[in-house]
Design a binder for these strands. Structure first.
Lengths: 225, 225
DNA sequence: GGGGCTCGGTGCGTCAACGAACATACGTCG
DNA sequence: CGACGTATGTTCGTTGACGCACCGAGCCCC
């Protein structure tokens, strides 16, 4: 029972929610868990509340790139809402915490039975699409430092905390750059007193300044969600 | 009455299709037409048959990047199928030709009335999402030359022709690179006798070779559609 | 307390792509 | 014909990011 529940669920009419409830199992997602691999069958969907899941495309062998970030505003496993049961991406738990889980079967029948649920989900899919689109352009045009700043801000928004645990190596996979690239960018931000960094724990010191350092994509994505 | 109709429509049961027909107006899309601008209301959807539409994100002022390509396998205006009536992207006619148009109103009520239509569309949205995802990674990791090769192949597949009209300047907006970048990449492909290029008309000479020059994204996207 | 591990920082040389500016080819139209 | 616009081609200095390799700092655990 999280203080701030998943927003997709919270937006449902009381009755729809009540019908859904028996299928929802509270779970704790832990950092590093892989919920799906690309091409793998989706047999559970997850509604994060305090947790956060990255959607990554994998290219060739060791390259990864985050294309979407799911927090309390969304659901992991959205292809199911489109009638498709395989994930095109890796879903990686990037911030551990509470979520609710539902089996693919229950989810499909809930969708059929509850138009409000379906409406909410489809709208979310659209928002996710926008996010992916914006991220694509961002990854193409913006400098690593700006992208890093954006990423940290997005993470903060979803975790609702100015401090979180993550290594530069992890970040390099999210941004699709070398680990050293993260070191350099993070070092620059740290020198400007915008963030603080130490052995896998990162803290945001000056969120205003960090917003200024981030590319405009941050605001655009936030305003469209 | 195109020889090869739009595949989404063709896949419908005869009865659903018959119900849809009165709302469908045959139109000819012409190169350069902008069907939607970002943020603009979608009041018509388009089912291409012989035509082809690029979906572009715009960044800052003069930067553009193609994130998706819609041909006879899809529909332009898919957000409507998700209950959203604004396009996040610019939809630009990239290959002129036949399409069928339908008003947003008719489309929405058709969706409500025809589950097969809805199913088909949602599955298409999923495919589009995969395409956008793959394109994002491609734009991040692959060289201009390989991306150009991929783009030409994708265009050929949708236009079903080995020769088409497009300028390097136009291509540069699709790929999100400088015009000169296209000149260099296209020159390299031409020197290798894979393509032929002259004043806005491009011809594919050796599609096998071009496939080899393209990144793996080409096959991946094609196989997932 | 020393070995192994993870994590972060630094310093190379290389390279694809960039911005800017300029040069040529072709077409059309007054 | 000449002028202008469009399309393509070339050059040049700059740069952001890359791959690679290595170092040091903290940590855990035998």
């Amino acid at each position: 029972m999280a203080a701030i529940p998943n927003l997709l669920l919270a937006a449902l009419p009381r009755k729809s929610y009540a019908e859904l409830l028996p299928g929802l199992t509270p779970v704790t997602l832990t950092f590093g868990d892989v919920l799906y691999e690309p091409g793998q069958k989706i047999d559970q969907v997850y509604f994060p509340s305090d947790s956060m899941v990255s959607l990554l495309t994998l290219v060739e062998d060791h390259l990864a790139l985050e294309v979407g970030l799911v927090g309390l505003e969304g659901v992991v496993g959205s292809p199911l809402a489109l009638g498709v049961d395989r994930s095109p991406v890796r879903a990686l738990v990037q911030g551990g915490g509470a979520a609710r889980r539902m089996s693919a079967g229950s989810f499909r029948s809930a969708l059929r039975r509850s138009p409000p649920l379906q409406r909410g989900l489809l709208r979310y899919v659209n928002a996710l699409m926008s996010q992916v689109t914006q991220t694509a352009a961002c990854n193409r045009f913006h400098l690593v430092e700006a992208r890093l700043a954006r990423w940290l801000l997005m993470t903060r928004d979803r975790m609702r905390s100015d401090e979180f645990r993550l290594t530069q190596d992890f970040l390099s996979h999210m941004l699709g750059v070398r680990r050293v690239g993260v070191t350099e960018a993070a070092g620059a931000l740290q020198r400007r007193k915008l963030i603080e960094y130490s052995r896998g724990v990162i803290g945001i010191l000056d969120d205003r300044g960090l917003e200024a350092a981030a590319c405009s994509c941050y605001r655009i994505v936030r305003n469209s969600t």
